[in-house]
Design a protein around this nucleic acid. Structure first.
Lengths: 335, 335
DNA sequence: TTGAAAGCGCTAACAG
DNA sequence: CTGTTAGCGCTTTCAA
């Protein structure tokens, strides 16, 4: 059964399609009387405007495309919450794609979203993204683009990030103050902005405390639990003397490290202290609860969406903006 | 800068738009030579077909709409993984909406997805969904529809669920065998299929063991951590004698209960044993690890998507199908 | 093997 | 205040 169109309404009311369209859009030219008739019939027929036709006509859809590396990561889930809230309020819908940390999938997603003629794109890159070619496609078609959290730095584009350096600095400074001597770092992929900045924060905090940096205590792994498991295992087995504290690039990695420590019967924080980054809900539930750096995820999503919307509505080339959000150290019993 | 269209290619090649269209779609009528010329120019111009125009013409988009109650729930995140995998392989994209457990938001989402003329809908209803009016909109426009996990039972529609009754039965049977005497149940919203079935499994398992059912040990709460906290608190404070084991409607609730028990210094399972439902990753990480019922979430997503695709491609009214997936009891140290 | 024309549902410029 | 016309980018008869 075909869906109701503006034409159907027009015929029944012996009006022209354009009048109906205008009435539906509350155009000032149309008489209240006509508007009423149109609206009530539309209601009765359960008319739903065909956004596809609208988009074709406007040469752009009211969809905001989002590409995240993993939907199941709570951090991204919260960000998505922030994005959708803002987008909905502005009359946009959101199309979420998961690149699953795969460069190839990320390309596919972007290609698809371009085909959908999205109004704009919000992207957080994968752990494996190296080239930036696919992001350049976006610029070429000048589709508004904002990166969040994990950004592509080769490209001039707006971005919303947290102060990763500062967050890491505070966490490690805290470990130093607590008196830990051999503070290790399980880091993420080297080229990722978040890994790099957090590592830099780690180094700077140790320097600031007048400590020498022992490079054997620095590992580059990944951003998932399994990387935490690998990393912690390696630190315990291959490094001697071992660390008495570990600052992990994020909470999933810290959780991985946590499970290794428990399995080996090591006490946290007595034998090894542990700190993460993100403040996943799980951080407060494990025992001992995890010291971590709180990232305002929802806020980040909101900001990114706002930035994008501004670009969309203003049309003209806007200078790339970089918003940096503050983090907060949450001290719990794991340190 | 306008994006490249079929017309641009046609002009440059002195062909008609229709020929270009056919060449791009590998139509047999077109000569290989022409196809090659078209394809290579398309490539060079980075032509991306405008799916909006295609959809308008086909009167249906290649988008599958998904409405979940909460994106951040790992269970749904995994389901979404399954859905997108299947959908992508079939050449569809997925538009994910979160109803945030709000009936109103759910309505909005559905309205929006209908406006987008999605090819089909995959829905898991909210905790607060009572009426089914908005689902009837979907049927009226005969848009293919499949419910998963949380289904609307007033409506004749295909669905993919797990055997909630059996899963709950196995969990409670296990608690009985372990020798627990006062087994409580923190349940979900009463009208939800999953809550009802799991409660029924609980009752049946106790009956099967020849136990009397103590109604004061049965609570109806919700599906989130906070409900677990409320529920467990109530069980400890208001019920006497208290329970020596609790079967929770899902893992988030079990986690909530877990944190209350720890806070009160009660030993798990010595003082109170705990079992959940879902097998969230967190279940294996907490200490003691949580006994729970594994739901094949990704598989559920895959099945739901496959069912929907079949409906989409076959067009004709298909009889509603109900797929029931098996669960598996995962026994850990919390019981 | 290719082209011309019409139309998907909507909006907007131009007329009246 | 309302109607006519054209067109968004693509596919698809029908004709050549």
């Amino acid at each position: 059964m075909r869906q109701t169109t503006i034409k159907d309404i027009a015929e029944k009311l012996r009006l022209s399609p354009s009048t109906v369209s205008r009435a539906l859009n509350d155009h000032p030219d149309i008489s209240e009387n006509t508007k009423d008739r149109v609206r009530s019939l539309a209601e009765r027929l359960e008319y739903q405007p065909n956004s596809i036709a609208q988009s074709l006509q406007k040469r752009r859809s009211k969809i905001i495309g989002v590409v995240v590396p993993q939907v199941k990561h709570v951090f991204f889930a919260s960000i998505m919450g922030g994005i959708t809230d803002v987008a909905y309020d502005a009359g946009y819908t959101v199309m979420i794609c998961s690149s699953n940390e795969s460069h190839q999938r990320e390309e596919m997603n972007i290609r698809e979203l371009i085909a959908q003629r999205v109004a704009g794109l919000l992207i957080s890159i994968t752990q494996s993204t190296e080239g930036c070619e696919h992001f350049k496609w976006i610029r070429k078609r000048n589709i508004p683009l904002v990166f969040f959290d994990r950004v592509c730095e080769e490209l001039e584009a707006s971005q919303v990030v947290v102060d990763d350096h500062d967050g890491a600095f505070k966490a490690v400074q805290h470990l130093v103050q607590r008196g830990y001597k051999r503070i290790a770092h399980i880091g993420g992929p080297e080229f990722l902005n978040i890994s790099r900045e957090r590592l830099r924060g780690y180094r700077d905090a140790l320097h600031a405390a007048g400590r020498e940096i022992d490079e054997t205590l620095i590992l580059h792994a990944g951003l998932n639990e399994e990387h935490g498991i690998q990393g912690m295992t390696e630190l315990l087995d291959a490094v001697s003397p071992g660390p008495d504290a570990v600052f992990c690039v994020n909470d999933p990695v810290a959780i991985g490290a946590y499970s290794v420590l428990r399995q080996k019967g090591l006490k946290i924080p007595a034998d090894v202290a542990l700190a993460g980054f993100s403040d996943n809900p799980i951080a407060s539930i494990i025992d001992p609860p995890l010291t971590t750096v709180l990232q305002p995820a929802t806020e980040m999503g909101r900001r990114a969406a706002q930035l994008l919307l501004r670009q969309i509505e203003f049309e003209k080339e806007t200078v790339p903006v970089r918003e940096v959000l503050k983090t907060e150290l949450v001290v719990r019993q794991s340190t």
